[in-house]
Design a protein around this nucleic acid. Structure first.
Lengths: 236, 236
DNA sequence: TAGTGGTCTAGACCACGGT
DNA sequence: CCGTGGTCTAGACCACTAA
């Protein structure tokens, strides 16, 4: 899998920031130096820097230079990335999952609309608890069209559906729309997230798209209020 | 205030999608046609389209074309934008604010760190309820350094601090880091958000930066669970 | 005035999808 | 094969900051 030059450069600089080769509020080499160093053109350097800017890792000042916005923090999820639970949390601790239920069924009307399904199209219905270092962190209700994601099995569900999708099926992820709300906890939350009766939960309801614009996941992800939190970076 | 050509083009196409000139899953004109239409170069067109892609408004397929991802929805907040409460909600309904308290004080240690303040620097301490069509929608606790945002007054607080910052002070917004959690409601929530005793609230804790990398706002924004929701689009 | 990042261009070549 | 979007280049000019 060959990456674009601007991606390689962005990854390289991001890693240097992570390893503190470049530190907070210190300047990066200027664009001309980077152009020479990476043996490329200035536009390509700017494209790489723009990714890091969107991720909230650097900022630029016209007439002055390019600076590191924040030191590395493993809990900080850069900018626009969303790679699923495993990808997000595996750098923080040990990640594993328990399947509460798994089924293939017909979608409800609302689900048909959200996932843009035609009649006769079935969906996977997956309920999982996901653990970080042995502690329950999220309860996930996931719906995926069988036509887009075939061949799911127990092993995949206990690990990462996302790595199956990208590595085995060769699909590419696109955008994700995520809606955040607070909710009262229900019986499943009490049981699987081990939370108390009046504890609230954070619910993230999301529709995730492939890069061809097709929605392939509708899920509700519930975090207990005293543990879960989702951080997002926005840029104007 | 002269905008870049790629911004003008992105705005134009975004407005056309909003007005349904381009509809869901219909192709946009191809890049060569857009290049001619806007009398520009292909790279500039691609830059404009990339903005809309990040906003989750379009998707592209190599070898096929560029397509509209979703029809216009006033509740959908495009991609990376964060322009504060007024900007986000004024297109949905009537927006106004009530000041619960306003003070200038010394920052606490945690606040000094988050806002990168030196000794002797004071902060505005603002508590407001913000209404959408007369209904309380959010309770906001906001801290801003007096040195960066001077000259606040009652009228500004009752309207939009953000428009004061961008229009009057001439500052430019940069990235924002937002952390979402669920919380139990407290006495202020009960009083000002008119929520019940065991109702949860959605809390968004955020640090907002200027485009020069300086943080200028630390705020906690609380939404009642049955009304508030924040939608964000991520892209991989 | 010198040095920085921001924008823009014309043109080249590549990767992919459908015919 | 053709038409689509994706990447990349070299070079130009502009806008802004600091000395």
């Amino acid at each position: 899998m060959k990456s674009a030059k601007y991606e390689i450069i962005a990854n390289d600089i991001r890693n240097k920031i992570r390893r503190n080769h470049f530190k907070k509020d210190q300047p990066l080499p200027n664009q001309d130096e980077l152009t020479k160093k990476y043996n490329t053109s200035r536009v390509t350097i700017q494209r790489a820097l723009n990714i890091l800017k969107i991720e909230g890792l650097i900022y630029t000042k016209i007439g002055v230079g390019t600076f590191v916005q924040r030191d590395y923090d493993p809990f900080y999820i850069e900018g626009l990335k969303y790679g699923g639970f495993t990808d997000n949390y595996s750098r923080i601790g040990n990640v594993n999952s328990k399947i509460i239920s798994y089924d293939v069924r017909s979608p409800e009307e609302a689900e048909k609309k959200l996932l843009e399904l035609k009649d006769n199209q079935m969906v996977h219905d997956i309920v999982r608890v996901r653990y970080l270092d042995g502690e329950p962190l999220v309860l996930e209700y996931t719906i995926m069209p069988v036509s887009i994601i075939p061949g799911l099995n127990k092993e995949i569900l206990e690990n990462s559906i996302y790595s199956y999708i990208t590595n085995e099926l060769g699909l590419k992820l696109g955008s994700a729309t995520r809606n955040f709300t607070a909710d009262k906890s229900d019986a499943y939350d009490h049981k699987y997230l081990e939370c108390d009766i009046h504890d609230p939960v954070l619910e993230v309801e999301q529709v995730v798209f492939l890069d061809n614009g097709k929605p392939f996941e509708y899920s509700q992800v519930r975090y207990p209020y005293n543990k879960g939190a989702v951080t997002v970076t926005n840029i104007i």
